[in-house]
Write a protein that binds this DNA or RNA. Structure first.
Lengths: 334, 334
DNA sequence: CTGCCGGAGTCAATCGTTTGACTTCGTGCT
DNA sequence: AGCACGAAGTCAAACGATTGACTCCGGCAG
């Protein structure tokens, strides 16, 4: 077992060349003039010794860490899993490592402190809310950063999805089925995605010439969704369909329907934003709007790679948004 | 906006002391003798300039990165989310950053290459299967590593949970309800957790004096679970209860029961390993066995911190394992 | 024979921190 | 007066890789 780490110098000694040559070979420096035979000696030595460049030394010298960060509120939310997948794949394609951290370690500002200076070359913030102290800290750290999937007051570096269109798609589906009394189970008022989906709901209702049904807000959690649905169904004339802002709430909302003694689809149709594997295994299988989440992660990384500290980015990702019809929506009977 | 990065030297200059003093102040070196007044000058300068230590330089010098890695197969699996949470919290408590990577970036060996030398101080592998080439690579990298939640041939560095006991708990619950014909929807044969749960099932059945019902294996996915359940129920005399190895399979298994035109709980009881938030929102709410997953992550990090490259670890984490009874299990009617 | 050129490397400063060893100074003791 | 000692810092050599500038050499044109 190797006791001391293998360094450039060891390889250089073994191949009887200068450290510089080894470095240039490793990095495929095109300005290096070298005989085939020498190159092979170097490569053989690298192989023989099992040399791996020391990343710390390298990034100290070059001040690039070849690492991007992604910060999310919670790993348990499968929506982020999709985003991570895309981001990881793109980072790998660029020769970077993506490191994902969540708020369960500590707050973002703790995280930034620990990430410190020189550990990452860029940071993606997904689903992290308003916090102006935060953005100041980020700017001071002078690394490129970007918000993913949600915006925040006064921040003009973000990539989002077309949530408004997604909401419209959902509402149009309900309208096409014949619903006229369509309520909206919205997300938390502080969430930007919630606001955009609500706007889409309103626009689509107006477009269809229908009055906006009742709107109640809830957290993006099953518990929140259940409570909100209960409120919606308690009305004297409950809606025949509900557009739910988020799939996690929808899971709870379904429970809410059952708790009210009603039947999903036949009596109350439900459609939610974000398609997850899970949706097709719920009972009844949930009709959803699929958003290009992985693509969002991918795009975020791509942008990070080419972002200057002071650039601004305000992009609505164009990507396929489609309605996945399952069993939770049906024509109204009332 | 800061143009050049602030270094120790800048702070030292501003506070009119040597770099060494600043370094020692930052690191709270107890051997440093310093006047209160001087210390305050230093701290003021740090604050004023917004100094953050450069992690690359620091880890080059100390050869510790203050970072642990965690590698998982897939972020979409909520079981890992729990593990990550625990691991992140413990890492943060130790002043480390936990970076989580999955196979979607690239394989583990690609990941190791990119992580390179000196980027992390230890690596946790959760749910990553047998691969002897891999362990060789890890040993060569000379960083401590540990398998979490599953073992692999010839590897003697792991922490696992008491899956056997979890399985027994589930089976005992079914037996107590009066079931005598209990089948087992097992996990994939290559998964170590699956084997341990199956062993627990067998032991508990023997203990109860019952014949082992049919056993079918399936992937830890809803689709796999659905197909397997269909097979189980197609038997001439189907079981009245099924112990499912994993909650993801169980979700599919529930669908399988419905597809067979049967009613969950009344006709077929289902209990699965791993309690997730989600379980209580399924319909009917799923009876599960809760395992201390977060604790597992926490323990893994703790061990990593105190592990020597050649140490061996074979630990079955003692932690609360409990049955969470919900609506998917009931006394048999047949 | 001199000058020049390109090929094949070599030299050494640099990135920002850490840390064991050393200095300087004032005080107290003998 | 001489010395020891502790307090309060200072000094400078690492850590390992990168990279612009430089050297050395053989061949060839003039």
């Amino acid at each position: 077992m190797k006791r001391t780490r293998v360094t450039l110098a060891d390889v250089a000694a073994m191949a009887r060349v200068d450290r510089a040559v080894v470095s240039r070979v490793v990095n495929k420096d095109p300005t290096l003039n070298i005989r085939q035979e020498t190159r092979e000696r170097v490569l053989a030595a690298i192989d023989e010794l099992g040399y791996r460049p020391n990343v710390a030394a390298r990034s100290l010298r070059t001040s690039r860490a070849h690492m991007f960060g992604l910060f999310i509120p919670d790993f348990a939310n499968p929506v982020y899993a999709e985003i991570i997948k895309g981001a990881e794949a793109e980072a790998a394609a660029q020769g970077y490592v993506l490191v994902t951290g969540s708020a369960s370690g500590a707050g973002l500002s703790e995280y930034m402190d620990r990430i410190g200076q020189g550990r990452i070359d860029g940071l993606l913030l997904a689903g992290t809310g308003d916090d102006s102290a935060l953005t100041r800290q980020l700017d001071q750290a002078a690394i490129p950063w970007l918000m993913l999937n949600n915006r925040s007051r006064g921040v003009n570096r973000y990539v989002i999805l077309d949530d408004q269109r997604a909401a419209a798609l959902a509402v149009e589906h309900l309208v096409r089925l014949g619903h006229r009394h369509i309520a909206h189970l919205a997300g938390p008022s502080r969430a930007d995605t919630a606001a955009r989906r609500s706007a889409g709901y309103s626009a689509a209702m107006r477009e269809a010439g229908l009055p906006e049904g009742p709107i109640v807000a809830a957290d993006y959690t099953p518990a929140g969704g259940a409570a909100a649905m209960t409120r919606l169904l308690a009305a004297p004339e409950p809606p025949t369909a509900v557009f739910v802002s988020n799939v996690a709430s929808a899971i709870g909302a379904m429970e809410g329907v059952r708790a009210a003694g009603m039947e999903i689809a036949r009596e109350v149709s439900i459609v939610a934003v974000h398609d997850l594997d899970l949706a097709s295994y719920l009972h009844p299988a949930l009709t959803t709007v699929r958003m290009p989440l992985a693509e969002l992660g991918r795009r975020g990384v791509t942008l990070l790679g080419s972002l200057k500290p002071d650039d601004t980015v305000a992009e609505v990702l164009a990507g396929p948004i489609e309605l996945i019809q399952r069993r939770s929506t049906a024509p109204p009977v009332r």
